[in-house]
């Protein structure tokens, strides 16, 4: 019974989403962009870190569709390679915040009472916390080779590869660090949303039924409550991705996020911004890509909200 209703709800939402032209177009653009980010750096004649100092910065041409940067590197390869990192940061950090937020909010909402009160008061306190200061400090102090997190990284990586101290792995460590730091600061709102959903759902008869059948607390939270609360959670997750990407771009702008010779849209755009009056294309291409991606994610999130949010459904005429 629940299955059937669930299906029709989902189909309903899907139809509604398909009617929203802006959301569909955004979704398609995102799919194409992701595909390009995967393929272009592989198929390109140039490598993302292949410098050609004799060439230097050149404007877009047949050989280099987006021109070259001040080290003579092919900008198109770099832009799409940077897209991989930017998108990955957005998606992975959102997943981190998703996992923390869903577990935290689910537990608080399900158990309610004193536990809920305490857990949510903690979230309130953390809301006023100047997290960005902490992230900046963490990036400055601990993302280097002599910080404790790098030691942990080396020992974990040592399980999988022979030589974890190989400098080739160091940039990967830095990016994982960015993932973790950004995910760790963006779960608060997610926890609040999940908790609110669970709080209303747990009074429903189907939860009572599951409990009488002897399903464990964990089972009820993860098998019965969370799947039913998924709509608003997905909407918020979609809107978290652009926020996280923007924060990564901001950190890269300050020189604390992704490091050369790797690239992310934030890093490329901030490098381009320094010389935009002479070589505007170095700024324009990554900036347009970043803005377009954020734009699409926001539109998609809005479309999903209209399609999935029951409050708006009730209000539709």
């Amino acid at each position: 019974m629940a299955e059937v209703q669930d299906n029709s709800l989902r189909r309903d939402a899907w139809r509604r989403l398909k009617r929203n032209r802006a959301a569909v177009v955004s979704g398609c653009i995102l799919a194409v962009l992701t595909l390009c980010c995967v393929l272009v750096p592989e198929l390109s004649r140039w490598r993302y870190d292949e410098a050609n100092l004799a060439l230097g910065p050149t404007s877009p041409s047949w050989g280099h569709w987006m021109g070259t940067d001040y080290l003579g590197r092919d900008l198109m390869t770099r832009v799409f390679f940077g897209g991989r990192i930017s998108l990955a940061v957005g998606v992975v950090a959102t997943m981190v915040s998703f996992v923390i937020g869903v577990i935290y909010g689910g537990v608080a909402g399900y158990f309610g009472g004193r536990i809920d009160n305490l857990m949510m008061r903690l979230v309130d306190v953390m809301y006023t916390f100047p997290f960005l200061i902490l992230v900046i400090l963490l990036m400055v102090f601990f993302a280097g080779k002599d910080g404790a997190p790098y030691g942990v990284w080396v020992s974990v990586l040592g399980v999988f590869v022979a030589d974890p101290k190989d400098p080739a792995y160091f940039p990967v460590f830095q990016i994982v660090f960015v993932f973790a730091a950004l995910g760790a600061i963006s779960w608060l709102t997610m926890a609040r949303i999940v908790r609110g959903q669970v709080l209303t759902l747990r009074e429903q008869p189907f939860v009572e039924a599951a409990r009488t059948m002897g399903v464990s607390h964990t089972g009820i939270i993860f098998r019965h409550l969370l799947p039913n609360a998924l709509g608003p959670i997905i909407v918020y997750a979609t809107l978290t991705v652009p926020q996280v990407m923007l924060t990564e771009a901001f950190l890269s702008f300050l020189g604390l996020g992704t490091q050369e010779p790797l690239a992310s849209w934030g890093l490329l755009a901030s490098g381009g911004a320094e010389m935009m009056d002479i070589y505007p294309w170095i700024l324009v291409f990554p900036a347009v890509m970043l803005a377009a991606t954020l734009f699409c994610f926001n539109f998609l999130g809005d479309g999903l909200r209209d399609a999935l949010d029951p409050q708006i459904r009730g209000g539709q005429r």
Binding site: P242, L246, A249, F250, F253, G266, A269, S270, A273, L283, A287, L290, A291, A292, L294, F295, N298, F299
Partner: peptide, 12 residues
């Protein structure tokens, strides 16, 4: 939406 999607370091 454009305002939200354009980072300040591009706008500036």
């Amino acid at each position: 939406m454009v305002g939200i999607s354009v980072p300040r370091f591009v706008l500036a």
